[in-house]
Amino acid sequence: MGGLIRMQTRVLVAYATRYGSTQEIAEVIVATLRESGLEVDIEPAKEVKALEGYTAVVLGAPIYMLRWHKEAKSFLSRYREALMKRPVAVFALGPFYDEEEEWKEVRAQLDKELEKFPWLTPVAIEIFGGKYDEEKLRFPDNILVRLPGSPLHNMPAIDIRDWDAIRDWASKLVAQFQPALAH
């Protein structure tokens, strides 16, 4: 059989989550990329076995207690060689309040975490608002938030995830993952 072999753009969306909020965002990113015609798989970062066959990767995880989720950092370390050969987009969940200082603090923390991977040059980095619900917390978080002095002590449930901004960011990734579509 002759002819041109066209490489299908196949994206992996890998995520780390503590209470499911990051997974919900990852699912919206997947749906948006699929609507644009890309082939997309979604998997928890810790369960990814290989990156062969993927032409691009999206990695998302929360900033929690001023640290990026350890499974995201482990994923970057484990797949360093493969990630250096593919476009990678990174997102993090962070602020619970829509206040400029909190957004800056979370972005600075993510930048600090990404500095530990100087070989990584993401095509896109984004921070999305987070979700907090004390009722869903498990040990030891449910104990820590009850301590006087905890910044989350007596905090009401909150969700500042901006679904339109998430879909918009994901749709912009299409051109970065499949440059032929940009023309």
Rank of each mutant, 00 (worst) to 15 (best):
L76I: 06
L76T: 05
S77W: 03
R78T: 14
R78N: 08
R78M: 11
Y79F: 15
Y79C: 11
R80V: 07
R80K: 15
E81D: 09
E81K: 11
E81G: 08
E81F: 05
E81A: 14
A82F: 00
A82P: 01
A82H: 03
A82G: 07
A82E: 13
L83M: 13
L83W: 05
L83G: 12
L83K: 08
M84Q: 13
M84K: 15
M84A: 15
K85R: 13
K85M: 11
K85H: 04
R86H: 05
V88M: 08
V88L: 09
A89T: 11
V90R: 01
V90W: 02
V90Y: 03
V90H: 03
F91L: 12
A92N: 09
A92T: 03
A92G: 12
L93Y: 00
G94P: 08
G94S: 08
P95L: 10
P95S: 12
F96A: 09
Y97E: 02
Y97C: 07
Y97F: 13
D98V: 06
D98P: 06
E100S: 14
E100Q: 14
E100M: 10
E101I: 12
E101A: 15
E101H: 10
E102D: 12
W103D: 06
W103P: 11
W103E: 06
K104P: 05
K104N: 12
E105G: 10
E105C: 06
E105P: 01
E105N: 13
V106I: 15
V106G: 10
V106Y: 06
V106W: 00
R107V: 11
R107G: 09
R107Q: 11
R107Y: 02
R107I: 09
A108Y: 00
Q109K: 13
Q109M: 10
Q109H: 05
D111V: 02
D111S: 07
K112L: 12
K112G: 12
E113R: 09
E113V: 10
E113Q: 13
L114T: 04
L114I: 04
L114D: 00
L114H: 03
E115W: 01
E115M: 05
K116S: 09
K116V: 00
F117Q: 03
F117D: 00
P118C: 04
T121H: 08
T121K: 14
P122I: 03
P122H: 02
P122E: 01
V123H: 00
A124H: 07
I125F: 01
I125P: 01
I125R: 08
I125T: 15
E126V: 07
E126I: 08
E126C: 12
E126Q: 15
I127R: 11
F128C: 14
F128G: 14
G130E: 04
G130C: 12
K131S: 13
D133L: 07
D133V: 09
D133R: 11
D133K: 10
E134P: 02
E134G: 11
E135R: 14
E135S: 14
E135C: 04
K136I: 08
L137G: 05
L137Q: 06
